[in-house]
Write a protein that binds this DNA or RNA. Structure first.
Lengths: 209, 209
DNA sequence: CCACTAACATAGCATTCGCTAACATCGAGT
DNA sequence: ACTCGATGTTAGCGAATGCTATGTTAGTGG
């Protein structure tokens, strides 16, 4: 039985769809690491076969991977946050939201790296990427904070400012953990998020009379 | 009187020090725009003469510009904040600090672009860059917040968490204004900072009895 | 004025890059 | 077994890149 030279049985032929997916996955890693100009088509071509059967140009491939990556977002937002929303557990809500964000960045550094690279490179999909991330988050936070304001528990605050401020605070920390890992506070991330949440929550709760 | 062909009188010869500075300035713009791999030495060489008389390699030049840019930081921090510190004007302190950060990013996008590019590219000076930025800021905020906690005005909060949280919230907004200008809140930056400051300040002030 | 040196300009080298073309091989169908 | 088409591999093209080498020119000092 003759294999192509140097290829194991595991490297059998894939159908077009699977091969395309494999190319995208490999390319995500390489572009996330090196950016558009830094990652070479030769690098990518040596990691996955028949690159040019699927993508005419490097730009086409980059666009495809940016689009694919931007479709992802923080997972389990609904499952995680819904219990706290139902219980009106403000602390649980914000704390767990913060933890989800940090965990997501920690687990998938490629996500934020590609977000940043695409923005710095002026990619046409960068705004879309950012908006998709934001929308996933805003849906929950705006809904919950409006509810809590209406109930008189939260102070009268522009809901969007509130939502984006919390996101900014937490994602800045999460981003630094990915991009400047040696420069973050020497503190367990759970403790850090907990403390940030306490400050923030105290800032949005109505003062007790 | 014969000039070199196509050169105006304005392009007289510079001494080595001035020429080096001019090369660094031009290179900062090009590297901030395109990153290390995206900016070509030919681009730079066509913008400023005798590049290779001053820098042996592209990497040497990049290192020089990263180092130069990382020495910069938010200007007028002392002049602006000291009056508020002396007056114990918490609101004024944080609000003006926030505005300074936003104005600085708006005025010098190259600063944050190079910070991000250097981090994404894994440059050896990226951490230094980030730390220098942070130190300038922390000096003031830690000092002030410790003072205010001692005076019993601010709640007992880890000062570093406090300082970094505010910075994170504001710089996330400032960064988005540079990198995702179409995605920021439709609101005057002064108003946005004011609202963020109010949330934050409420979060750190002791509850009134 | 001349000589010298530092600043400047440009042609070109070797290597790398994105991509194409030609060929090889697998796998399904007859 | 054979054929055909889709998947896979590799050599090589033309252009781009970082850098070197060579020659030109400005400016200073004697």
């Amino acid at each position: 039985m003759s294999n192509s030279k140097g290829r194991s049985l595991a490297r059998r032929r894939m159908n077009a769809e699977d091969r395309r997916s494999a190319i995208i996955s490999a390319a995500i890693r390489l572009f996330a690491e090196n950016g558009f100009r830094g990652a070479t088509t030769r690098q990518i071509a040596s990691a996955v076969p028949v690159l040019y059967e699927h993508f005419a140009t490097k730009s086409d491939l980059y666009r495809a991977i940016i689009d694919a990556k931007s479709q992802q977002g923080i997972e389990y937002l609904r499952e995680t946050l819904t219990p706290y929303m139902e219980r009106r557990d403000d602390r649980g809500f914000f704390r767990n939201l913060g933890l989800l964000i940090v965990e997501f960045y920690d687990k998938d550094p490629d996500y934020v790296r590609l977000l940043m690279f695409s923005a710095l490179e002026g990619h046409e999909l960068a705004d879309v990427y950012y908006q998709r991330q934001l929308e996933i988050y805003l849906e929950f936070v705006l809904s919950y904070t409006r509810q809590r304001m209406k109930a008189g528990v939260f102070r009268r605050i522009n809901p969007e400012v509130l939502a984006r401020s919390f996101a900014g605070m937490v994602s800045s920390y999460a981003q630094a953990r990915v991009l400047f890992p040696n420069c973050v506070m020497d503190m367990d991330p759970k403790a850090a998020i907990d403390k940030m949440t306490r400050i923030f929550l105290h800032g949005i709760l109505k003062t007790q009379d």
